[in-house]
């Protein structure tokens, strides 16, 4: 299957220090990738590189012909600056913008209907006229998801979507993710993979370098253990962990 995105030997850093080094990754249609790793390990940076928000020092990102303009991005809602005066509906409509339609103020009715339908799907239609500063954190996150979905993305990137979320909002979000899986590839960045343990296809561990695992590397008895001790999934090579130790840098073929 031709990948939607093929990332080869990507390196990027701040000042002199590499934060993401020699990362290669392929995202295929309807893939569900968990991108995990410690805080400061470069997860959000890798996401911003893929999205084109920042440019890599070296390496390439190739998109399948139709995929480049069709990336959905849900940033961490806790960091979102809500001071801009805009309604929920107008905010979602900014998700329809692309390099062809950002000028001239005519707005297509089709976009408007699509935005309203997306908000309805996310249970926010009655708040479409509200200002974004009046929303709760969970509502703001759903608006950010609606903004990402309104452009019919082929890949949806979610940055720490379940962080600081109560159990019921979390299960609502997981149901939403399940309902989207048939339509798009999903990449979830998280430092806590527990809620996704039954869902993912691939798991990518990023701590400057990236290590990639298939689902098969975690069989179902061990998945039970993942629930019991979620931190262990990161502790490669330490006794009682679920994954073998990564090859050192020099060992790799």
């Amino acid at each position: 299957m031709e990948p939607l995105i093929a990332i080869e030997h990507l390196t990027y850093g701040y000042e002199q220090r590499a934060v993401v080094e020699d990362v290669s990754l392929r995202i295929v249609p309807e893939d569900f990738i968990l991108l995990i790793g410690p805080n400061g390990g470069g997860k959000t940076t890798l996401l911003k590189l893929i999205l084109g928000i920042i440019s890599p020092w070296s390496g390439t990102i190739r998109f399948r012909g139709d995929a480049e303009g069709r990336l959905g991005y849900v940033p961490q809602f806790a960091n979102f600056n809500r001071t801009f005066p805009i309604s929920v509906l107008d905010m979602v409509l900014t998700g329809c913008l692309n390099r062809e339609n950002y000028y001239l103020s005519r707005r297509r009715n089709a976009d408007r209907e699509k935005a309203a339908a997306t908000l309805a799907k996310l249970g926010l239609i009655e708040r479409q006229g509200s200002n974004i500063s009046d929303l709760s954190g969970g509502q703001l996150q759903r608006v950010l998801i609606a903004r990402a979905l309104v452009s019919d993305p082929l890949i949806l990137f979610l940055d720490e979507p379940t962080t600081s979320m109560d159990a019921s909002s979390q299960s609502g979000l997981l149901e939403l993710i399940d309902s989207l899986r048939a339509h798009m590839a999903i990449v979830v960045v998280t430092h806590d993979p527990t809620p996704y343990a039954h869902r993912y296809d691939h798991i990518a561990c990023l701590n400057r370098e990236l290590h990639y695992h298939r689902r098969g590397e975690l069989d179902s008895p061990t998945l039970e253990k993942v629930y019991g001790c979620p931190v262990e999934i990161l502790g490669h090579g330490i006794p009682h962990t679920l994954l073998p130790r990564h090859a050192r840098r020099g060992d790799r073929p």
């Binding site: 084109g52 928000i53 480049e68 979102f80 801009f84 913008l97 692309n98 390099r99 000028y103 001239l104």
Partner: peptide
């Protein structure tokens, strides 16, 4: 401003998202 209104708003609202949508953020 009338011509570029939506682009200016997108950049003022969320510069990173505008970049991800491939808007010419630096030019705006």
């Amino acid at each position: 401003v009338v011509v570029l209104y939506r682009g200016f708003v997108a950049v003022a609202l969320d510069e990173e998202y505008a970049k991800a949508r491939r808007l010419p953020v630096a030019s705006l």
